[in-house]
Design a protein around this nucleic acid. Structure first.
Ligand SMILES: [Mn+2]
Ligand SMILES: [Mn+2]
Ligand SMILES: [Zn+2]
Ligand SMILES: [Zn+2]
Lengths: 142, 142
DNA sequence: AATATTATCGCAAAGTTTTGCAATAACAGA
DNA sequence: TCTGTTATTGCAAAACTTTGCGATAATATT
């Protein structure tokens, strides 16, 4: 059973309706290797559905993020990008200077996450964490 | 010497021009206890300058974030909020369900940040980190 | 103080994301 | 399978953010 099917089933169990639009959007995001913008998802689905509206894409992505099935990150230029949780656990290191995203390992962070849960009762989403900073290239070229 | 003065001086040293608009905006952000949107900053400055343009506020905030003097975060509803680094070091825990922001202590995270620097050469901005997840209230009421 | 250079500004337009509303379709129950 | 309820959709408008361009003003130089 693929990831998109489990997501759709879970949504249905939570009382949300599974529409063709949601199916297409979830599938597209789940099968993508990279982060996608709402516009990109909409374009990729154009051949399959001429009537799918961009607002529906945004609303579905909001739902997925809200329910924890996807993550929203801020790409270069302030545009939002989305990714599924399917995407194996990793850390994003995003450079403030050049905007590039570097994947990194979460190893070593777990104790701190556990501490936050104990101290504040807050359950951190660890699947797609993002840290901002300056990358090796840009550190050098300053 | 207040924080806004040092920021303006540093900007000048970096070759950026210090304009009345930039002075006002930096001052407003530095003196604010809370995170502000571009629109809020613009409104607060309306009495002082009738002609200050919202686009200038956005461009100045972009500059401040790019140069590391401010942080941009995504508020509820997808609107951007800004804060200075003045704002003492802390972690933001933002709840996916209710959108509330909880401040938390960074204590215990330093070793991991150091590890990222060693392993990837990436210098994480630790002044205003944000983790997403689910807050105690919302965990309970599920 | 006057001048030259060019970064920054205001404005208007474009691009991106959210929202209100009436029509539609998903799904629970008969 | 048919019916009723209401969550979801498409569309259009609003809200938010970025960008191009000519005019202006900040800084360096004389
Ligand atoms: Mn990723
Ligand atoms: Mn803060
Ligand atoms: Zn970089
Ligand atoms: Zn919450």
């Amino acid at each position: 059973m693929t990831h998109c099917h489990t997501t759709l089933q879970s949504l249905r169990q939570q009382g949300f309706r599974v529409t063709p639009q949601r199916e297409m959007i979830v599938e597209t995001l789940a099968h993508s290797e990279t982060h996608l913008s709402a516009e990109e998802i909409h374009q990729r689905l154009q051949p399959r559905s001429k009537t799918l509206n961009l607002a529906t894409v945004y609303r579905t992505l909001d739902l997925l993020v809200e329910q924890g099935y996807a993550t929203r990150l801020v790409g270069k230029g302030g545009k939002f990008l989305y990714a599924t949780r399917q995407h194996s656990r990793h850390l994003h290191l995003i450079c403030r200077k050049c905007g590039r995203t570097y994947p990194a390992d979460l190893k070593g962070l777990e104790p701190f996450i556990a501490h936050l849960k104990q101290t504040y009762g807050f359950q951190v989403e660890v699947e797609h964490l993002t840290f901002y900073g300056v990358c090796p290239n840009c550190l050098q070229s300053t």
